[in-house]
């Protein structure tokens, strides 16, 4: 670096120092430094350092120790179950959530406000409460379980029970993502479709649903992310049989109770890595969808 002479320009009056930052805006409002340092410090202490501990821990017994966990058939079975049932629940919620959101925005009927408020119950109800309630309801002796038992359908203590719990947990994500878009959908666009001869079903399928795709996908992602990590509402109803109905978060807890920290951390890291991969993929689709939307 050589110190070349600055280009000729107007004399800078004394007392004026050009701003030191390379960001050109002057910070007129107070509190930038203090709020930024609060944010960074807090996030570091609460999120980043703990996550660093999680990333560092699995290598205690070298790569082999990690690979041993990764190839453990019980771990693999639990991952398959967790991601599989979570995906099934999210897909089911995609349809149910769309119907519920549609009914809540399109139709007025007695109790609509109540139903609308109840959609948020899974957010507000502690997972342990949901867990024991769903288990009691869908157990062979429960109100619904007793109805299904004669048909030979068992829900509680099977993977089907996990599905029920995850559907419960994920429903509000889809409904609340889709609902505002549906509510704000321009009535004139719909009317235009009708004047062009489209039936109500055609209007819904060809005009309205495509514009809902980004919202549906974002609801799907949120529901899936939540379902993969869900613990409280699942463990009561799942039965927790290794290889059959044992979810990954439970496996982490079991390893922890055996004081196998490295093993617990390994399973957690694998699960976290997989869910990030899935979410990144869904994000990419989301981006592609919004580009498509921007073009038309």
């Amino acid at each position: 670096m050589t110190a070349s002479s600055p280009p000729a320009r107007a004399p800078v009056p004394t007392g004026f120092k050009p701003p030191r930052t390379n960001l050109h805006t002057t910070r007129v409002l107070p509190g930038f430094k203090s709020s930024l340092s609060l944010t960074i410090t807090y996030l570091s202490l609460i999120v980043l350092i703990p996550l660093a501990a999680l990333v560092a821990r699995p290598w205690e017994h070298g790569l082999q120790g990690f690979l041993f966990v990764l190839t453990d058939s019980r771990v693999i079975a639990s991952l398959k179950l967790t991601f599989g049932v979570a995906a099934a629940a999210a897909i089911l919620n995609l349809f149910v959530g769309l119907v519920v959101a549609w009914v809540l925005t399109r139709y007025s009927f007695p109790g609509r406000r109540l139903l609308d408020a109840l959609v948020d119950l899974p957010f507000a109800l502690p997972t342990a409460v949901a867990g024991i309630a769903l288990c009691t309801l869908y157990a062979p002796s429960g109100w619904i379980g007793a109805l299904l038992a004669p048909l030979g359908i068992k829900i509680a203590y099977t993977p089907l029970g996990i599905l029920v719990a995850l559907v419960f947990v994920g429903l509000p994500f889809v409904v609340r993502s889709v609902q505002p878009v549906l509510a704000e959908f321009d009535a004139e666009v719909e009317e235009a479709a009708q004047t062009l001869g489209a039936s109500p079903l055609q209007t819904a399928v060809r005009v309205i649903f495509p514009s809902l795709a980004p919202a549906l996908l974002s609801g799907f992602s949120l529901a899936l992310a939540r379902a993969v990590g869900e613990y409280g509402s699942v463990i009561f109803i799942a039965g927790n049989m290794p290889y059959v109905s044992e979810i990954t978060p439970l496996l982490i807890v079991i390893k922890l109770q055996e004081f196998d920290y490295a093993g617990a951390a390994s399973v957690a890291l694998i699960m976290l890595g997989l869910s990030f991969l899935v979410l990144i993929g869904l994000n990419a689709v989301q981006l592609w969808l919004s580009r498509q939307g921007g073009r038309s």
């Binding site: 107007a10 800078v12 004026f16 701003p19 805006t25 002057t26």
Partner: peptide, 17 residues
Amino acid sequence: LDTPDSGSITFEGEDFL
């Protein structure tokens, strides 16, 4: 609300910058 790269602004003889 912003700062210039160079130059001066004075008001009633006072350096505004």
